[in-house]
Design a protein around this nucleic acid. Sequence first.
DNA 1: CACATGTACAAGCAATGGTTTGTGCTATAA
DNA 2: TTATAGCACAAACCATTGCTTGTACATGTG
Lengths: 111, 111
Amino acid sequence: MTAEAHGELDQALRALADGNRRAILGVIRSTPRPVGEVAADVGLSQQATSHHLRVLRTAGLVTETRAGARHLFAVNSDGFSAVRSYLDDFWPAKLSALRAAVESRRSGVDG
Amino acid sequence: MTAEAHGELDQALRALADGNRRAILGVIRSTPRPVGEVAADVGLSQQATSHHLRVLRTAGLVTETRAGARHLFAVNSDGFSAVRSYLDDFWPAKLSALRAAVESRRSGVDG
DNA sequence: CACATGTACAAGCAATGGTTTGTGCTATAA
DNA sequence: TTATAGCACAAACCATTGCTTGTACATGTG
């Protein structure tokens, strides 16, 4: 983990790597929800759910809003952009283009 | 991790959650490479690199080809499709559409 | 102010995961 | 076949991480 351990991409991917966190994202995907409801839906304790939501929030995948004593969490689409653009680098078209470029460079220099 | 711990999506995301594995993907992105070269490029031991390549291979993000004594690894674009389609569920347009649907359902039933 | 609800914070624990070290297996070369 | 290069397998070690338990803080309510 000596490689870029705190970038947007790294934090987002590590947050998404956990199944319970993805379950939480699924629960708050359609509408903002307080921690208690999320915990009940995913079957985790309040503390564990709160912890996961904090990880998601730090990663930028989720936003927090306070409504009285309740903390409402909602999905933040913009937080996924880093992951999206990273995946684009592995899109078939981009890959083949890159490979073609490397190939032509090899034949041009070396032969 | 009681939630779908062995699906394509889970394995792919967990594989991508490590910075060194992403570095490895970057190294073999343009052309297939043997383990030794990859290890030298990313600055990891042969064993560690081999291990990471195996994780990536199990996740379907990488394919292995043997060329004599060497094991060539290359990026497999298709392996990223599960992650891509998962991210699509969090695309702004889809999110707002989902939220609108939930909203109309609420006003229709409850009021 | 006292009380209940909703949530975050902190420590301890168990499990997961990445790296190292050592070794065995496979394939080319002499 | 012997030697060597390239790589995988396996165990041990250490750091990270997710979960639990306990508790403190904040916001409404009487």
